[in-house]
Design a protein around this nucleic acid. Structure first.
Lengths: 204, 204
DNA sequence: TAAAAATATGAGCCAAAGCTCGCATTGCCA
DNA sequence: TGGCAATGCGAGCTTTGGCTCATATTTTTA
């Protein structure tokens, strides 16, 4: 199925329409649930006719795909920026920064994130998510290899995988069923402890 | 919406029909995906008429609910049995057993598990899953409290939550995108290391 | 300013899927 | 063996929601 947008907006007005559709789609998804997120409802909330909607997106899946893309790109962009200069920093500090970055990333649109993560399969975002976690895995593995001498001897690839999955799962899960925890320093602290102790870093 | 089965089977034959429907539903879900899992298709695969299907389930959601219930009960039952006598064992051994149990649990119907976990929202199994993880949390917290003297000083409730979420996420994720890892002793070993080192247990 | 291009509209088409209902068949019991 | 209850059947009703298309409006261009 074709998921690419149907036309590139040439005038400002159509660009606005395009934005309105995506915004409305995300809003309906969050506020009314996947079931209510029909193309007609999205068009209505966007203040746009159903015909216009289909001038920009070839089908409903393309809308969902665009939302997922944008959301994941947002997250990955933030994470990438936050971890750019990590290589130079000492381990404990790098871990703190990484954990903080993942927490920040989950604070952007937590409600949209919750809906999307529960419905990724339905909305066809599985492969995108797995590609994203793959990128994170490579990032962390690269870093651990640089610091190999400072951590206990382990299978670096496996260790990186374990850390990426754990950290993301903990923060993701907290976002979903205990958002108030996200803000507490104890929470971030314990995740750092989990990581540093696993790696065998002293004084964690 | 009513999700309870419509009638209790009185004769052996109807019991078989009921089983056939649930089995077929799980099979279609796994082999053909959620989209193809229509009530008509399920009835067809079950070798049963659509009319019969609706004699046992008031609606499609009830079928999905029954599958989720059965699957989660299976998992929770296994986990419960496997962790019954954990309290007496030393920490390192208890952790090994717990991790092994969670791995075993994920080996039962990994394919069904994958589909269900990706579609829980759609199929209405969110609350059931969260109740299950809540039970696991209580289980682990109770155990940690018994062993409080042997672990480093931490917020026991938070620690239990972190461990339950991490261990489950790691094994769950491995089930989904690296099933071959599940069998390796190194995998289980590293998860145990993660847990024991976090708790500050010596010699892990 | 007039034609052409871009954009917007929304009634309604159509396929898909959940589900019903009247009838057929099978099994149980006196 | 006759009759009643339980179970099984499947054509098709109904709703829903994705999507089209003929037409209208706005903007650009020459």
């Amino acid at each position: 199925m074709n998921l690419t947008p149907r036309k590139q907006p040439k005038q400002g007005r159509s660009r606005a329409t395009w934005e309105a559709i995506l915004t409305a789609a995300a809003q309906v998804l969050v506020a009314e649930g996947v079931d209510r997120a029909t193309t007609n409802r999205i068009a209505e909330v966007a203040g746009v006719s159903i015909g216009s909607l289909y001038q920009y997106f070839p089908n409903k899946a393309a809308i969902m795909s665009a939302i997922i893309d944008r959301h994941l790109e947002d997250m990955l962009g933030m994470l990438g920026r936050a971890t750019l200069e990590l290589a130079d920093r000492p381990l404990a500090e790098a871990v703190r920064h990484y954990v903080a970055a993942v927490i920040e990333v989950h604070k952007v649109h937590p409600d949209l994130h919750r809906v999307l993560s529960r419905q990724l399969g339905l909305l066809g975002g599985d492969d995108k998510l797995s590609e994203m976690s793959h990128r994170a895995h490579k990032l962390v593995r690269g870093y651990l290899e640089l610091r190999r001498s400072e951590i206990r001897a382990v299978d670096i690839d496996l260790a990186a995988w374990i850390l990426v999955v754990s950290v993301d799962a903990l923060i993701h899960q907290a976002t979903i069923d205990a958002p108030e925890r996200l803000a507490t320093p104890a929470f971030a602290g314990e995740i750092c402890a989990l990581v540093l102790r696993y790696l065998g870093v002293e004084g964690a």
